[in-house]
C-alpha cells in the first residue's frame, strides 16, 4: 500500500468516526434533519460523481432515477406490503436496469448533449408518472404510518435511525468508490472522461464501461429515492421527480469538487446546512434573503474556486508546503 492510499484510508475511517459521533452534538430534531439531508445528498453527490466526475457524463436528470427508486419501493410497500428494505434493494436494481436500457442510446451522446438529454429524461418520466393512474397519478402515494422500528423503516420519536441508515449507505458508497478508484474500472472511467476516442483506441470497451457507470450511479440514486420516500412517507411526481433535486445533486458534487472521493461529501456537509439554516433563520421573513445567501455562496465558489472545496484545500496545502520548504531552504543558507 502506498503512503497516499494509507492517508486516504485513514481519512475515510476518520470520517466514519466523526459521522458516528456527530449526533452527540445534534440533539434537536431540526439539527438531526440537517444531518439526514447531509448524508442523503452526500450519497447522491457520490453517485453523480461516479457518472460525471469519473466517467465524464454530466447528468442533470438524476431526479429520474431518484423518483423511480422512490416509486418502486413505495408501490411495493403500499400495494403488496413488501418490506421497505427489500423495496430499497428492488429500487436499486430496477433503476439500474432502467438506466442500462436508457444508457444504450444515451451513452452515444457526448458532453453537453448528454447533459441536455438527461434533463429531457427527467422531465419525461415525471409526465409519465403524473398520468399513470395505477401509481396514483398526480395525487401520488401516501405510505401509511406504521409502528416505528427498523422492520417498518419508519422512525417517529427520533431521526437518528434515519441518519445512521443514511450514514451506512454513505460509507458503503465511499468504500465502493475507494475500491473502484484503485481498480482497472476506475482507470477506464477516467480514460473515457479524458478522451473517449483515445480510450477506445487503446482497447477500453467504452459502451460497456459507460453503461456500468450509469447503472451503478442510477442504482445508488434509486436507493436514495427509497430513503427519502420512507423519510417523508409520501411520493408524488412533482416532489420526487422535481428538477431541483437534479440540480442540487450536481451542485453538491461540483461545490465540493468532483472527480475525487471526498468532494461531494464536503460539498454536502457545507451546502445542506447552509440551505437549511438560512431558511430556518431568515426564511420566515419571506424576502428570499436566505436563498440569496445560499446563492451567493455558490457563485463565490464558482468564480474563485472552480475546482471546489477539494481544490481549495489542495491549494492551501500546497502553499503551506511551499512555505515550509522555503523556510527550510532559508535555514540551510543561514547555518
Amino acid at each position: 500500500m502506498q503512503r497516499d492510499d494509507i492517508r486516504n484510508l485513514a481519512m475515510l475511517v476518520a470520517f466514519a468516526i466523526i459521522g458516528l459521533l456527530f449526533p452527540i452534538v445534534a440533539t434537536t430534531r431540526f439539527s438531526q434533519h440537517i444531518l439526514v439531508m447531509v448524508v442523503l445528498y452526500a450519497v447522491l453527490g457520490e453517485a453523480w460523481n461516479i457518472m460525471a466526475g469519473y466517467a465524464g457524463m454530466v447528468s442533470i436528470g438524476q431526479a429520474a432515477f431518484f423518483g423511480l427508486g422512490a416509486y418502486v419501493s413505495s408501490v411495493l410497500s403500499v400495494k403488496y406490503g413488501v418490506s421497505p428494505w427489500l423495496g430499497m434493494l428492488c429500487a436499486g436494481l430496477a433503476t439500474a436496469a432502467f438506466a442500462t436500457v436508457i444508457g444504450l442510446p444515451f451513452s452515444r451522446l457526448r458532453g453537453r448533449y448528454f447533459a441536455i438529454g438527461t434533463i429531457a429524461l427527467g422531465q419525461m418520466i415525471k409526465v409519465v408518472f403524473e398520468n399513470w393512474q395505477w401509481v396514483g397519478a398526480a395525487t401520488g402515494l401516501m405510505i401509511p404510518l406504521a409502528n416505528q422500528g427498523f422492520a417498518s423503516f419508519q422512525f417517529h420519536a427520533s431521526k437518528l435511525p434515519y441518519y445512521y441508515t443514511g450514514l451506512a449507505l454513505l460509507l458503503l458508497t465511499l468504500a465502493f468508490m475507494y475500491i473502484m478508484e484503485r481498480s482497472k474500472m476506475g482507470y477506464y472511467f477516467k480514460a473515457i472522461r479524458e478522451n473517449e476516442d483515445v480510450a477506445s483506441g487503446l482497447g477500453v470497451n467504452r459502451t460497456a464501461y459507460k453503461l456500468i457507470a450509469i447503472a451503478v450511479s442510477a442504482g445508488i440514486t434509486g436507493m436514495c429515492g427509497t430513503f427519502l420516500a420512507q423519510y417523508s412517507l409520501y411520493v408524488e411526481p412533482e416532489y420526487m421527480f422535481n428538477h431541483s433535486i437534479s440540480v442540487t445533486i450536481a451542485l453538491v458534487a461540483v461545490f465540493g469538487g468532483s472527480g475525487n472521493i471526498i468532494g461531494p461529501v464536503l460539498g454536502s456537509a457545507i451546502l445542506m446546512p447552509i440551505s437549511e439554516l438560512t431558511r430556518a433563520w431568515l426564511g420566515s421573513s419571506g424576502t428570499g434573503i436566505d436563498l440569496m445567501i445560499y446563492g451567493a455562496f455558490i457563485v463565490l465558489m464558482c468564480v474563485y474556486e472552480p475546482e471546489g472545496l477539494v481544490g481549495m484545500a489542495r491549494r492551501i496545502g500546497a502553499s503551506i508546503k511551499a512555505q515550509r520548504e522555503r523556510r527550510g531552504a532559508a535555514r540551510c543558507q543561514n547555518s
Binding site: 434533519h33 417523508s232 409520501y234 408524488e236 422535481n242 437549511e276 431558511r279 426564511g283
Partner: peptide, 21 residues
C-alpha cells in the same frame, strides 16, 4: 412562521422545527 418553499420535504422539516424548537 415557517417557509415550506412549496416543497414537501422542507414543509415537513419546517413543521417539525417550529414544533420542536
Amino acid at each position: 412562521f415557517g417557509d415550506t418553499r412549496g416543497d414537501p420535504t422542507q414543509g415537513m422539516a419546517e413543521t417539525e422545527r417550529i414544533i420542536t424548537e
